[in-house]
Computed example of a mutant assay.
Amino acid sequence: MIEGFITGLGAIGFLIRKELLALFKEPSSRVILLVPALLQSLLFGYGATYDLTNAPYAVLDLSHGAAAASVMQKLDGTGVFRRQAMLVSTTQIASAIENDDMLMVLVFPADSENRLGAGQSAPLLMVLDGRNSSTAGAAAAQVGAIVASINAGRAGAPAISIERRAWYNPNLESRWNMMPGLIAALSLIQTLMIAALSVAREREQGTFDQLLVTPFTPMQLLIGKAIPSILVGLAQSTIIFLIIVFWFRIPFAGSVALLYLGLVTFTIAAVGIGLSISALSVSMQQAMLYTFLLIMPLMLLSGMLTPVSNMPEFLQIATLVNPLRFGMDLTRRVYLEGAGLHEVAHDFVPMLAVAAVTLPLAAWLFRNRLA
């Protein structure tokens, strides 16, 4: 029995070596495995940010009063808003917005000071570039807060003072929220693709028929196909993790061991899905098509861009079979909050459930293919 076990391990080792050699023997394959993770993490880190860091604006001040000067002074002092022009006519507003020169134009009517002196409210017209709704909304919110502070100062000492503190992300940088989730999200793409192509590639290259006459059992074949994909997925997660920590300098608050325990569980679930796709596909093109069709729903239903709680109820139910939802939640909480095992244990259960379904399914499909 022991000899048979050792022989089985040796056979699995040969399969793993064959799969790794097939993945890394060509320079183009090595580039595809490493470069996308590097480029995507940098692009998401620099490009996919919802923070308002540079807001050019123009002012049409028809009142020439103290209130307008106070608003402009506070805006310019934020370091975010940059006053680019002082307009002299309402006809200049349209061109300033349409040419992408300004994010917004503030218009102070001519009677603003007279209305304020008479104890009446004075309108402030804010013209926003709605083509970038998230940035425009953030700018409008900041201007509203500044105007509210000025109003409070004019009315005397306020009775309520609002203080805001943000846990786990003191400066409310969207990069801090998005980047840790990418540790799981970006590796999912390559992991699914590699696992999905593993058997389909064998069929197209004609080596699948050779597997039919080997002494490998379906379980040995499954393990030999799964472990290389898992190793590649973990390697890509490691690349992204190191970029986040050492390039973007986002502090890591949790346990590395717990993070990788979660990543191993998530990657196994993803590989189970990929191997099931691979066993069902008769060609590499078909495997790629199935994979691309699956990746987009997995991303959209993961909570990376839209909180799951904001989704319709039927979509929230659909996310329960999405391992990426729980993989992202685990990596974010461990990375930013320093969460312990008891706090993220609920994330392991769905990922293990997906793996428990997809891996036996792939083994059953292999068994039928090899029969």
Rank of each mutant, 00 (worst) to 15 (best):
residue 1 M to Y: 13
residue 3 E to Q: 14
residue 6 I to E: 09
residue 16 I to V: 15
residue 22 A to C: 04
residue 27 P to Y: 09
residue 37 A to L: 05
residue 42 L to W: 11
residue 45 G to V: 03
residue 51 D to E: 08
residue 58 A to Y: 10
residue 77 G to L: 08
residue 83 R to M: 09
residue 86 M to T: 15
residue 96 A to I: 04
residue 99 N to E: 11
residue 104 M to N: 02
residue 105 V to I: 13
residue 108 F to W: 05
residue 110 A to K: 03
residue 111 D to T: 00
residue 111 D to M: 02
residue 113 E to L: 01
residue 114 N to Q: 15
residue 114 N to V: 14
residue 117 G to Q: 13
residue 121 S to F: 10
residue 122 A to G: 08
residue 129 D to W: 02
residue 140 A to G: 11
residue 142 Q to L: 15
residue 156 G to V: 05
residue 161 S to I: 15
residue 164 R to D: 01
residue 166 A to V: 11
residue 169 N to V: 02
residue 171 N to Q: 14
residue 175 R to A: 13
residue 178 M to H: 10
residue 184 A to P: 00
residue 187 S to K: 01
residue 189 I to A: 09
residue 189 I to M: 14
residue 192 L to M: 12
residue 196 A to F: 01
residue 197 L to D: 00
residue 198 S to V: 01
residue 201 R to C: 07
residue 205 Q to G: 05
residue 205 Q to P: 03
residue 205 Q to D: 12
residue 206 G to R: 06
residue 209 D to Q: 12
residue 213 V to R: 05
residue 219 M to V: 09
residue 230 I to Y: 07
residue 241 F to E: 03
residue 244 I to Q: 07
residue 249 R to A: 10
residue 255 S to I: 09
residue 262 G to E: 02
residue 263 L to H: 04
residue 265 T to R: 01
residue 268 I to K: 06
residue 269 A to W: 04
residue 272 G to F: 04
residue 274 G to P: 02
residue 275 L to D: 03
residue 279 A to I: 02
residue 280 L to A: 14
residue 284 M to G: 08
residue 289 L to G: 04
residue 296 M to K: 03
residue 297 P to L: 09
residue 299 M to W: 06
residue 302 S to A: 08
residue 304 M to D: 00
residue 309 S to N: 12
residue 312 P to Y: 13
residue 321 V to T: 11
residue 322 N to W: 03
residue 325 R to L: 09
residue 334 V to M: 06
residue 347 D to H: 13
residue 350 P to Q: 12
residue 350 P to S: 11
residue 360 P to Q: 11
residue 360 P to W: 06
residue 361 L to T: 11
residue 361 L to E: 08
